[in-house]
Amino acid sequence: MVETIVFYTLSALILGLGVAVITTPNTVHSVLFLVMNFLCVAVIYVVLEAEFLAVIQVLVYAGGIVVLYLFVVMLVNLKRDPEAHQDPRRLSLVGLALAGAVLLELAGIVVYSYSREPSAPVAAAAASPVQGNVEQIGWLLYTDYLIPFEVASVLLLVAMVGAIVLAKREL
């Protein structure tokens, strides 16, 4: 019952924030809404007992990717509101609050995943020789899904070579 309420509240939040991302006129606000969206998705992962995914979601999406977005947005300087510059202290406070939220969420995930009772394992997990969310994902990646995992490394190499080829002025 509680889980259902949490799930639907989070879903509504995610949808609402998603709409906010594409409707706000200010690009920086849009990216910040995206961060909140990602954080809510991470909470959903925790509710679904996928702690590993939740941590990855926060680290990779809310952390890495959005920082890149912000860099790009600020570099290309998409018609920012001039009043956004008026109070630098307010902006730094927002930044601090966001950083605190991320930290809190990460801490929450860790505390939650260590404190909760282990739930009844689902069928696939029962067959696995290791316990724990992260361990099982690791086990699957290095046994059953070794092929896609290794091909993904080729994919990353291609992306790296491609980025260098396209971005470097003259090799």
Partner: peptide, 25 residues
């Protein structure tokens, strides 16, 4: 014969092509 493998293969091909298409800088 499995969706993840197929998808990773497709993505590897697609990313290579994104770069190849833009090779005439």
């Amino acid at each position: 014969v499995e969706l993840i493998t197929l998808f990773i293969g497709l993505e590897t091909m697609a990313v290579s092509f994104y770069v190849l298409v833009g090779f005439l800088k």
